[in-house]
Design a protein around this nucleic acid. Sequence first.
DNA 1: GTCTATACCGGGATAGAC
DNA 2: GTCTATCCCGGTATAGAC
Lengths: 199, 199
Amino acid sequence: MATYAKGRERRAEILRVAREVFATRGFRSASLAVIAERAGLSEPGLLHHFPSKDHLLTAVLEERDDSEIERTRRQVEEEHRSRAEALIDLCRRNATRPEMVQLFTVLAAESVDAAHPAHEWFVERYRMIRALLVDGLEQEQREGRLAPDANLEQLAIEIVAMFDGLQLQWLLDRERVDMVAPFERFIARALPGPPPPRR
Amino acid sequence: MATYAKGRERRAEILRVAREVFATRGFRSASLAVIAERAGLSEPGLLHHFPSKDHLLTAVLEERDDSEIERTRRQVEEEHRSRAEALIDLCRRNATRPEMVQLFTVLAAESVDAAHPAHEWFVERYRMIRALLVDGLEQEQREGRLAPDANLEQLAIEIVAMFDGLQLQWLLDRERVDMVAPFERFIARALPGPPPPRR
DNA sequence: GTCTATACCGGGATAGAC
DNA sequence: GTCTATCCCGGTATAGAC
């Protein structure tokens, strides 16, 4: 029992460190030696918990905050916040977690290579996010806040693009680039606010 | 003379291959062995032309198409095309050169790490591009096509973000994601067209 | 200008003791 | 569950011959 609890803590600690290291170095040039050392155990010790580097990557990706997506969904469906506000809120939250933003920015770009172990994962993740957005936008359309002939698929692509693109510039130059204000402006232009014009 | 010409061709060929390999693997996990082999010479042969991997990266970055930026500038200043059209043209051209897009997308994200050999280069490159855009937008403002109180710095950040973000999604999923049409729509909303409303 | 040979490091992963 | 020891690969870079 005590051993099991200890194992779980270890695992969690390894994942925490792996996130850090993958975020700074990307997956391929990250090393198990560094992760093991920072997690306070040996390399074979690490590989006892995650049998290979690929397994470790998978665990990091799987574990990681699709709780954020869930949170956003909840804000809209249960707390009745507008979709625009929920998106801006997500952006604002990301501005407080540069490490997580970096993890996904770096891994997503690295995974553009079809041979990357997370390639399929990212392709699917983006499809999923765009599909979620399209669903939300359809709802906006039904409620009269978007033109009936708006190209929702294209709009979803744009929203995701703005989100990612701002994150990259922000990561590279946090002193000069704010991502929240530009994203707010973009959303204000792309998604009309909560009062439905009705007619 | 013949030797010199041969040397230049070699160099060019090495750079061409290095671009390819850096684009797929990023800088850090790219290997000189692969580059040398594809360029048809040995590893020390390669290092005769570029004394280290870092030198090779520098050469790839320096050589690379800021001729594109120059081209865009020329379109606006000499061929009198609108800034909106010139940006869209650049996007359209990139859609025909996925490898070059991938090179910059992958390296830019990898260089977010302050310890990356190209970190400063990318930070400066983005500052330069935003400054160029702000200059152009000021001109648009003076010509009455942008509101006098528009936040040009923010708008420049947004344009760059959309550009990069679309490229990432497009690289990951070219079959489903078109980057030109969304960029056109975005620019149409962000930058009013050539006819200056005058009043 | 290009090669072979080599030095040397660091990578991921496994065997097997404790 | 964690370790030491070890394997074997591949990395960058250099020395020195041709």
